[in-house]
């Protein structure tokens, strides 16, 4: 049957489809974290932001009937959590890694607490754009049903790359990240720059969460994020704080997540637990290969606590 099976081709197609479907949360969280880390602060709490964003997006979409309002609500929630992180970190002698872990816990707890009544109802989902109209093959069409958020994420990556390089804001963020003294000497408040960078980072991470609950997998439940937020934070280091590399790395992670089920569907069945761990093993392997004890990482903001 022509429309039924395309055999082994489903594997690359599923990986492509998976890369598009699964990568979006990774992409948003990693781009957000990229901004935050470039300003010299690490926010490990984005897992909590992601889950909180997913919950609030679902709730608002359900209550108002508009998924886009849900996305906005997720962004706002995310930036509030970002502001909380930045606010606590701006106190003297407070460790940003610890605050991140605390907010991860707080965000997840709050999302589960407030999200209880949202597990059952079905909220309106985000629409998809059909980019596969040219193809007769349903699998291709399915893989190319793309959500606008993915496209926005893909667009943000080069814009961010360009903004870091050429705009005044990009320069300020980088200066705060490279040397807070220099930023202060230029007459800027480092804390304010980091506050804004963390809020923008939280905004993006929250939107990443809205993708999870409003598009794919597309509903709210407590197992929704299996560590995507925290993986995305690792991904930033892996991507050398470069927004364009964040994009490629997110796509690779999304594809890796789709690989296990896709291989099973064509008969490769052994060791799926190890396949499930593939993204983590991959990250660790690449970090081992590319890191060096002799020098700090290229591209690493000098003020960042984890690279010192």
């Amino acid at each position: 049957m022509a429309d039924a099976s395309i055999g082994l081709w489903t594997v690359p197609l599923a990986v492509l489809g998976g890369a598009i479907r699964v990568s979006t949360p990774f992409l948003f969280v990693s781009l957000g974290e990229c901004i935050t880390e470039r300003s010299g602060r690490i926010n490990l709490g984005l897992e909590g932001t992601l889950v909180m964003g997913a919950m609030s997006a679902y709730g608002i979409s359900y209550l108002t009937g508009s998924p886009w309002l849900g996305v906005l609500a997720a962004g706002v929630t995310g930036s509030l959590l970002g502001a909380l992180h930045a606010g606590i970190c701006s106190l003297p002698r407070v460790n940003d890694i610890a605050v991140g872990i605390a907010l991860m816990l707080f965000g997840i707890g709050l999302a589960f607490f407030l999200g209880k009544p949202l597990i059952e109802p079905t909220a309106p989902r985000l629409p998809a754009i059909d980019f596969g109209w040219w193809s007769d093959i349903p699998q291709v069409r399915a893989a190319l049903r793309i959500n606008v958020l993915f496209l926005i994420g893909v667009a943000i990556a080069p814009i961010l790359y360009w903004a870091f390089k050429t705009t005044r804001w990009g320069l300020l963020i980088r200066t705060a990240g490279e040397s807070s003294d220099a930023a202060r000497a230029m007459g800027h408040s480092v804390l304010l720059i980091r506050l804004r960078a963390t809020m923008v980072g939280g905004f993006l991470a929250g939107i990443g969460g809205s993708f999870l609950s409003l598009f794919y997998p597309g509903s709210w439940n407590e197992g929704l994020s299996s560590g995507q937020g925290i993986t995305a934070v690792a991904l930033v280091i892996f991507a050398r704080w470069d927004p364009l590399l964040c994009l490629w790395a997110s796509l690779a992670f999304g594809g890796a997540a789709a690989l296990g089920p896709a291989l099973q569907s064509v008969g490769v069945t052994s060791g799926y637990h190890l396949f499930n761990a593939a993204p983590y093993i991959l990250t660790l392997a690449i970090m081992i290969i590319t890191c060096s004890p002799k020098r700090t990482l290229t591209g690493a903001p000098a003020e960042l606590s984890i690279t010192r």
């Binding site: 099976s5 489903t10 999870l212 929704l224 296990g260 896709a262 099973q264 569907s265």
Partner: peptide, 15 residues
Amino acid sequence: PVKEAEATNSLIDQG
């Protein structure tokens, strides 16, 4: 959930 969604899509891709 993400794995379940991927599995669902893979299966449908297989016809």
